[in-house]
Structures are given as structure tokens and as C-alpha cells.
Design a protein around this nucleic acid. Structure first.
Lengths: 240, 240
DNA sequence: TGCCCGATGTTGACAGCAGTAACATACCTG
DNA sequence: CAGGTATGTTACTGCTGTCAACATCGGGCA
């Protein structure tokens, strides 16, 4: 008994047709070897994450999507966690792209431009969280050894090189804050630690939209709330 | 074959000894009926959550801890999610307690007292997140039908009665903000929506401590960062 | 050119999980 | 004291992550 519940297409050995016909990688014209399985799996996992959040990133489901056996994934990823980590990284890149887009909308120099640029960053951040909640949540989910890995015991282990944690997005914020000091928006003595307030506010607001009482807010009100939050955090940073 | 891998003590029917000797409920002097299984399971689940976060809340593990078969839990909880919800509620109560403790540290009236009281709330909030990260995370985890339930499809369903979501803690914040308006700390026209900024900032800061770059901060610096964040959010709310 | 080895993918299996069904016990109520 | 019901138990299903052993293919050396 025990029908093979796993791979949808032809089960028994000897069938020379089915194996890896489906997906993207045109390279190997796919029979037995996929040719680009790693990326195909990541892509599938990303789709899962996008529509179901981190919990939906199921190794076997990704393999199924690609039309490959579950264990094949272990030739390209150490772990489930490792696969999740790849999705996480993708999510972070997307987030950075949104922030950059938000910041680039504002040109020019001077206090007001910088101020608007900061708001743009925050707007982009929150917008990404709202338009891609699954990816956003995945980008911030624990488990999934990312830039800094989490051991099985839960201990945190520093990555060797990079400044870690959301490196790039954090960096963008820092740069803009430096700019704000340069143009006199923020006094130098209030500069250290300013990232944290800004980040906390924006991240918190995003969370309120995703899990909190703001989830079902109509679009117009949502926009108002976002502007309000962005205004408040800037006001706080610039206050005497 | 198939050794009974589940309940540790005597497997085969007919053994009149072992079943429910272990835990707290002294009520029924425990043989077959536990007497207070629901609460015992919740307690066990709380311990799991405290030391491993929401993912560690495994129904079977809780049952094991209490010394009862896994399926017994289904007499007291609809779901895994239902059990998780109970833990979540406990976590929220603990959070409220911490906030109240933080707020009560400040007596007196007038602008400065109110201001300090708000900081106290925030301090209590963040402190809870830092001292009980597992419970805090569980208190805010999706899945786990809490005050407002989440259907299997992911749709959100309003609870009938309560204002929903972190009701009590949100309420405390609102009351204190009202007080702030009353004593002239915040202008009335900036009052609406003020909860959101405040909540977002504090929640975000807590998250940065748990998952973000602040996790390994030495105690002294952590205190500084917290005060900084609290200062900034208040400054933002009070700014013209 | 041909063959062989390592990379890649497959079947099969195991343990742990949520959840259901059918059976067992013990408490409480009439 | 009898029986119904609340509570607990043993299977069992189907899902997951992960390991071990086997199969296949493609590229480098002869």
C-alpha cells in the first residue's frame, strides 16, 4: 500500500518522461537535473511567503511547486531555516527598494527637502509592509538564519563581517539622519541614537497596520495616520 | 510493534496507578480525572511560551508536562490556536500589570507628573518585553484567536463586544493621553491619533530590543536608549 | 572518443505535530 | 443506586522536517 503521496507526476521508476518539465530554468531542457533548482526553490518559497507569511514557507510545499522531491532541496539548503533565510533576504532587499523609491521622490537640498526625504523613507517602509505583508513579516521573522544566525538553542551568533541586521535599510536611515544634522534639522548632540527612535516608530507603525487595530483602516484614513506618525517622529527628533 | 511513544507512564490499559499524579491541582487527588486540567494546561503552556516564545507552545508538550494524553486537551480547547489564545491573554494581562506598575511609580498631578507617568507606562511596557520576551512575543503573535479571532483563511473577524486588541493596555495609554491634554501637555487638536504614535514607538522599540540590533546591549546603555525613545515620542506629541 | 566520479535528484523511512473517531472511566444527579 | 455526561484514553490519518541509501546524469580525464 502506501501510495506515493509526494511528487504529483509519475511515481514509479522507469518513466522517462515527466520529472522536471515545469518551471523557469530553460537551461538544461530539464529531465532529471533541473539546472537551477536553488533559485527555483527560492522563487517558490517567496511566493509562499508572499501569500501566507513565514509560516507558509514549507520546504515540501516549495519542492512540490517546482515539481521536485522534497529531499532534493537538501542539496541546496542546509535546513528549512536556510531556505527561509533566503526568502528573508529577498524580503529585505524589496524593503530597501521601497525605501529608496520613497526617498528618491524628493529632490533638492536644504532642510525642507531633507525633512521630506526622511518622510519618504518612512512612507516607503510602511507602504512595503502594507502591500507585501507576507514578505515583510518574513523579512523580520526570527528563526531563519539571516544576516546574523540564530542557533538551535536560540542563542544569537554574530555574523562575521557585516554590521548585521537589516544592514542596508538601517544604513539609509543613518545617512539621511546625518544629512538632517548637516542642514541643521537636528542638533548634533541629539544625533546619536536617533536611528533607534525613527526605526522604532516606523517599525511599530507597520506592525500596528499588520497585526494591530489599523489593519482594516480605509485607505484615506490610513494615509492620514501614516503622515501623522511620520510627523510625530520627526517633531520628536527635532525638538529642543 | 509501534511502541507507544506518547504518554511516558504505563501504557497498557489496566494499570490502576500512574495517570495524573504529577501537577498542581490538589482538588481531585488525581487519578483518572485531573480536576483542573484546563488551568494546568494553560499553566504548562505559559511556561513553554515563557522559555521558547509562541512557537514553543506545542499542545502535546503541554499535555506531556501535565502528565496527560494529548487528546485530553481537546476537551478543554477547540484548537491548538485556542490554547495559544489563552496564553496570549495571560501575556497581555502581565503586560498591563507591568504598565500599571510603571505608571503608578509616579504620584501627583500637573504637567510634569503626567509626563513622567506616560514615561512610566512606556518604561513598564518595554521592561516587560525585555524581561519576558517569550510571553511578550506570544502576547502579540498572530494565529491564536484572541480578543479578535483570525479565521483559517486569514480573514479577521471582529469580536462581538470588546473594543478588541490589547484593549486594556491601549485604554491605559488613552486615559493618560487624555490627562495630558487636560493639563495642557498636548494641545486638543493633536490629541486624536496620539495613541498610535505612542504605541508604535514603544512597540517598535520593544521589537528592536527583542529581534533587532539592541538585543545584546549592556544594561546601562539599554536604559539610556529607552529613555531616549520615551523622550522623543513625548517631544513629538507635544511639539507645535 | 569513451568512461567514470561527483553533483544532483529519487525513493523510503522515522519521529513529532495537529486533529478525529471510538472506546473507557468516573463523577454527579435523579 | 443507576445511568448519563463530562472527562480522559487509545488508535489512526495526514502533514511536516530530516536522514540514509540508491539512481542518474554531465563534465573532465584517459
Amino acid at each position: 500500500m502506501h501510495a506515493n503521496t509526494e511528487a504529483t507526476p509519475g511515481g514509479a521508476a522507469g518513466d522517462p518522461s515527466a520529472p522536471a518539465a515545469a518551471a523557469a530554468g530553460r537551461r538544461g531542457k530539464g529531465r532529471y537535473h533541473h539546472g537551477d533548482l536553488r533559485n527555483a526553490l527560492i522563487q517558490a518559497a517567496i511566493e509562499l511567503a508572499a501569500e501566507g507569511g513565514p509560516d507558509a514557507v514549507v520546504l515540501r510545499a516549495a519542492a512540490r511547486k517546482v515539481g521536485v522531491s522534497a529531499t532534493a532541496a537538501y542539496r541546496h539548503f542546509e535546513n528549512h531555516s536556510d531556505l527561509l533565510g533566503a526568502v528573508k533576504e529577498h524580503g529585505q532587499q524589496r524593503l530597501v527598494a521601497c525605501m529608496e523609491a520613497g526617498g528618491r521622490e524628493v529632490h533638492g537640498e536644504g532642510p525642507e527637502a531633507t525633512r521630506q526625504r526622511m518622510k519618504g523613507l518612512g512612507r516607503g517602509y510602511i507602504q512595503f509592509a502594507r502591500t507585501e505583508p507576507g514578505l515583510y513579516r518574513t523579512a523580520f521573522c526570527r528563526k531563519a538564519l539571516g544576516v546574523l544566525g540564530i542557533t538551535e538553542e536560540g542563542a544569537i551568533v554574530e555574523g562575521d563581517e557585516e554590521p548585521g541586521w537589516e544592514a542596508r535599510s538601517f544604513e539609509m536611515l543613518s545617512e539621511t539622519l546625518d544629512e538632517a544634522v548637516a542642514v541643521g534639522l537636528i542638533t548634533p548632540e541629539r544625533r546619536p541614537g536617533a536611528e533607534l527612535s525613527a526605526w522604532a516608530m516606523v517599525h511599530g507603525a507597520a506592525m500596528l497596520f499588520l497585526d494591530g487595530p489599523l489593519d482594516v483602516l480605509p485607505e484615506e484614513e490610513a494615509g492620514y495616520v501614516i503622515e501623522r506618525v511620520l510627523h510625530d517622529v520627526l517633531a520628536g527628533l527635532m525638538a529642543p
